[in-house]
Design a protein around this nucleic acid. Structure first.
Ligand SMILES: [Mn+2]
Ligand SMILES: [Mn+2]
Ligand SMILES: [Zn+2]
Ligand SMILES: [Zn+2]
Lengths: 136, 136
DNA sequence: TATTCAATGCAACCCAACTGCAAAGTTTAC
DNA sequence: GTAAACTTTGCAGTTGGGTTGCATTGAATA
């Protein structure tokens, strides 16, 4: 049993052929992945299967979703230890030139002083600008 | 000439009847406004006119847009001094219960140490959880 | 082997965002 | 004041990401 397969089993997700391919695809990317990216990368696969695979992966905390403001939801692999709780949150960077979105996993979200009685459970923090490639 | 009208002129936006009504509507809200909200609030107005009014207001920095992850873009009035630059950015709060989105105008975005050569131009920072009303 | 449940593929649907175009309204030129 | 030029508005339609119903296939269980 290879690494990809055991990752799925660890998260109690049945390792079907499709799911192994999708997870494999994620490990090969250095940027966040959209449903369209998956459709292009795994062209033999059906869109709704890929969609449901993403939802399954998200629920199982194999990936987390990113709303980068491009109108397309992106997904990226969670870190080994990630439980998608407050302490696991990090910033994301969306390049307005190449449209790529990256996890800044080393940049954790600071504690934020909310107004009285507000309760923070989640966050979607997206920095926009130029990535190293696009910023000459 | 009333206050609403002069606000538009200050930003070089021709104060048509429609625009005055939309800006009036904004001043009456304590939460961020969606296109659908405007359609409901100003039912006699056409959707695409309202849509284009929002775009005009956004370009003229009368309002700023918020991607709160609900799948619907929200808009809120800019502060008097706002130029929609880095120093004007603030956090937003999206209540996952009542679905309302609020500007936390007193909470400015801190400086963030980006990876080498990355350049920050904008940000969309959304905290999710329960607002004071929904958090008993 | 028969039964049951989960995953997949296909074909739609939904809906927010956006656009083309003609009509109405406003500004400018003469 | 009137005609031409430009802007705004209203209507109707398109686009595209996201989502769902349902039949089929495949895997697990009895
Ligand atoms: Mn991430
Ligand atoms: Mn705001
Ligand atoms: Zn880039
Ligand atoms: Zn609330």
């Amino acid at each position: 049993m290879n690494n990809i397969e055991s990752q799925l089993k660890d998260k109690s997700v049945k390792p079907t052929a499709m799911r192994l391919l999708v997870l494999q695809y994620f490990t090969e990317q250095s940027k966040a992945v959209s449903l369209k990216d998956l459709e292009n990368g795994l062209s033999y696969a059906d869109k709704s299967t890929l969609f449901r695979t993403l939802k399954t992966f998200e629920e199982s905390k194999i990936v987390h979703s990113i709303e980068d403001g491009s109108g397309v939801t992106k997904y990226a692999l969670c870190l080994e230890s990630c439980n998608c709780e407050l302490q696991d949150l990090h910033y994301h960077f969306h390049c307005t030139n190449c449209e790529n979105t990256f996890c800044l996993t080393t940049l954790n979200i600071p504690t934020i002083e909310l107004p009285t009685n507000f309760k923070m459970n989640q966050a979607n923090m997206v920095i926009k600008g130029l990535c190293a490639n696009c910023n000459e």
